[in-house]
Write a protein that binds this DNA or RNA. Structure first.
Lengths: 208, 208
DNA sequence: GCTAACATACCAACTAGTATGTATGTAAAT
DNA sequence: ATTTACATACATACTAGTTGGTATGTTAGC
């Protein structure tokens, strides 16, 4: 009875589990790419992080590029959905956005890494259309989720009617990414704290 | 008589001219780094662009890192001064900033490269303190030039007194870099055009 | 027994850096 | 004025380390 349950639910960690192996490769790949960039990401380092070997990597992914694509589509896109799309689905989007901004960490260790989406976008967009399009899709869906929430908020009289939802969504994202980028370089908590105040002030000014 | 003039003024292009060679290496290095990133920049490609060989490179620069540092300090810092510091030294800084924003190209080919400063800052800041500090100095001076112009504008009653010059300078830079970053990925002129309008609207709202 | 899911060993290409050679400019000595 | 001496300013050829990818072997699970 225990044996049958294992097949779907309690998978032993040390035995064979291709989905779990693939997950570990994606997670390890993401961390490596996040820290060093895609082009400088070392596949041997990815394997060490994941605790597997070359055979496992090239069984699950055709090559380095395919791993990079999967990291975008499955890891980064999912992080974006968790952080932005889902909270924006209900409630007052202004409150939601203020909460997201407010909870942005200003410790040096946190600022240091920057935004996973923007890091990859800046590095790869001019170099590879496969990467650029996949990242542009994330941006488009991010923008769509926010603009949609703005339209709903206007209908529910939570957001000023004179604001264009699309322009505002683009503006909020640009502002946010801009501050995160500057903070990543300056390593100065004061910069990001100033940014958080300014962004929250602006979000407040959007209320109906 | 012509022979003596050559020594300082009319240096023949094909003969020896170490300053000119160094310049060509810096320019070629900048273009290579701008297109591919520092870590992926190929020194052989730099040499081909510059039209010189390894000997020339390693005579003028100790190693790849030293070339990278020089590119930041001499090329990118100078570009920033030309584009921002000098125009901000006199006149109404709001007019100056609006003009800079207005003249930002929205063609795909122009958006594609992104901001040279931000490109390098995003790639290298978490990886190398030598790069990060040199880039942070550019950001600090950029910010200082703008905040200084804002303070002057407040004294001359061109800028609202309720605005904090430091916070405003950081905000303008973050906004600008944010939009440039998004445009680089999206490749959509509409995004940047929307950003230009929003930035100009905001700058107008800063007037006393 | 067969295939999926890996592990191991190896290779070929790329690339930063070096070692060495050489031509040029220049200043002092003759 | 010419030669000598020497440092400068490169060019050429090579090396060593890295790294993405492959070929082959091995084990688990049905």
């Amino acid at each position: 009875m225990l044996a049958t349950a294992r097949s779907k639910l309690r998978r032993s960690a040390s035995l064979r589990d291709p989905e779990r192996t693939r997950r570990k490769l994606l997670d390890a790949g993401f961390r490596e790419v996040y820290e060093r960039g895609y082009q400088s990401a070392d596949l041997d380092a990815v394997l060490e992080r994941a605790g597997v070997t070359k055979g496992a990597l090239y069984y699950h992914f055709e090559n380095k590029e395919a791993l990079g694509h999967a990291i975008i589509e499955e890891v980064i896109a999912e992080m974006t959905r968790q952080k932005w799309h889902i909270p924006l689905q209900k409630g007052n989007p202004i409150d939601t956005l203020i909460h997201i901004v407010q909870s942005t960490r200003t410790e040096v260790a946190e600022m240091r890494g920057g935004c996973p989406f923007n890091n990859l976008a800046q590095e790869m967009s001019p170099l590879d259309e496969g990467f650029r399009k996949r990242l542009a899709k994330i941006l488009s869906e991010w923008h769509g989720a926010m603009a949609g929430a703005f339209r709903r908020a206007q209908a529910e009289k939570m957001l000023r009617k004179d604001l264009d939802p699309d322009d505002e969504a683009t503006f909020v994202i640009a502002m946010y990414e801009g501050y995160i980028s500057l903070a990543k370089n300056s390593q100065d908590p004061k910069l990001l704290k100033s940014g958080k105040r300014r962004m929250i002030d602006y979000l407040e000014s959007m209320r109906a």
